[in-house]
């Protein structure tokens, strides 16, 4: 951990986050979020959390951006300007109060790497000491995730698979809705579900919506 480098990365993190919220072009916002994740992974690597850093770089900077781009291609590229300023001004003090509460709570936290910290006094010592003998695995993170705490990992994997199934249930277009007269009559029938009507790289991605417009 190098303190000046960490401070610079923190500044860049806040900058990219604010820019990602304010920018009008959603593709630019996705690129900024990917940059945010990349700098966050640098921060994790700086404190020797290499596993977390790798996942953050692969998932945050890579795949999440791709899924966002997919969602943008399927909907619209431009964000809508929010006109309701009063709501924004009521939210600001709430956010400030929450921030103050978090900072106040973080004062009590033990220093990072403190050997007397509660997290370092329990079972974690046993894991660190016995992992190599128990499982022949030099990387303690892996033996923790896949052996000592494998039920947690099972739950996480189930969550991911469930998320994919839920996304399928929400987004799938059923054939009988489109082709056999069950669709609402105001919708244009699709010639073929696999055919892409809109030009994918036209300037306005919203042209993809045209095929669903009412007659």
């Amino acid at each position: 951990m190098i303190v000046p480098l960490d401070l610079i990365i923190f500044a860049v993190l806040i900058l990219t986050a604010v820019l990602a919220i304010n920018v009008k072009d959603l593709l630019a916002a996705v690129a900024l979020l990917a940059a945010y994740s990349l700098f966050a992974s640098l921060l994790f690597a700086g404190v020797n959390a290499v596993d977390v850093s790798l996942v953050e770089a692969a998932l945050g900077a890579g795949l999440t951006g791709v899924l966002f781009i997919g969602a943008i291609l399927a909907t619209s590229r431009h964000s809508m300007a929010r006109r309701n300023l009063r709501r924004r001004y009521t939210m600001l003090p709430l956010i400030g109060a929450f921030l103050a509460l978090m900072v106040y709570a973080s004062i009590d936290l033990p220093d990072r790497g403190d050997p007397e910290a509660p997290a370092h006094l329990g079972v974690s010592q046993t894991y660190l000491r016995d992992s190599l003998d128990d499982t022949q695995t030099p990387n303690v993170v892996t033996s923790l995730l896949a052996d000592y705490r494998s039920q947690d990992t099972l739950g996480e994997t189930l969550v991911i698979v469930t998320a994919a199934l839920a996304a399928t249930l929400v987004l799938i277009r059923r054939r009988d809705d489109e082709y056999q007269g069950h669709a609402p009559s105001r919708e244009l029938p699709l010639p073929d579900g696999d055919e892409v009507v809109a030009d994918p790289y036209a300037d306005d991605v919203r042209s993809a919506d045209r095929r669903r417009r009412p007659r």
Partner: peptide, 25 residues
Amino acid sequence: ILVVEVGVGLAVFGAMVTIFDVLMG
């Protein structure tokens, strides 16, 4: 551990590809 890692890898791969495909119609 190796079996579990391969299982998790396949599950994550399948879930992500499914989400992308379904998002793209």
